[in-house]
Design a binder for these strands. Structure first.
Lengths: 105, 105
DNA sequence: ATTACATATAAATAATTATTCATATGTAAA
DNA sequence: TTTACATATGAATAATTATTTATATGTAAT
């Protein structure tokens, strides 16, 4: 098992589908089928994304009958997600005010 | 100018060189030449990375004589960087304890 | 045991992103 | 006003990552 670096966390969060999955998992644990349904994406694609999240230590899973249930590996990820969302708003604000207007088309 | 989403922030942070640059800028403002020197990478490569950071609203720049000085666009990015670093440690810890050991080679 | 359901995997392809190389631009000094 | 220095850009290539397709595996119900 590799060391989990902040770089790896960012990489995992930098894909739209993986990010969506993580946000869903931050609300409740979910079976693969539910994730497939709620995202509307293909099952093998979701399975790949879940594997990446698992292998990079951001998600954990266990089997329950026919289903496999996924969860966030750590509560601290919820914190990451919300802090970055806030920062996104702040940066956006700063950018609109200071210099980005100059480059508008 | 595009809306800055949390996804874009993650994308910018998910490249080793860009992340290194952002961490450097979180300590002090720097001229391009200094960044090139301190990272040891090629000048055009750094210039490309800086452009990405600028265009995504994470960095700002101004000219000072022959030099161009870069800075973080927002203090809140420092917060993001440190929160994720912490989360990395936490996740790592959780993972080592709970389930990743099972998959060790 | 056979079938159906849920999930995982591997290999192939497609798409995106990073890096290099050559050169252009903009500023200041001689 | 030529030269040097600092940075930026564009086009070409290389490398990485995402997606699809086909199929395998594992569990449970009949």
């Amino acid at each position: 098992m590799e060391k989990i670096t902040d770089l790896n966390i960012y990489k995992m969060l930098s894909d739209e589908i993986r990010l969506k999955i993580l946000k869903m998992l931050s609300l409740k644990n979910m079976a693969v089928g539910e994730i497939v349904e709620e995202t509307g994406m293909d099952q093998p694609l979701i399975s790949h994304k879940l594997r990446e999240l698992r292998e990079n230590g951001l998600a954990a899973s266990y089997r329950s009958g026919k289903n496999v249930i996924y969860s966030l590996s750590s509560e601290s990820l919820k914190n990451v997600i919300s802090v970055v969302e806030e920062a996104g708003n702040t940066v956006d604000y700063v950018c609109n005010c200071i210099e980005c207007k100059e480059h508008d088309e």
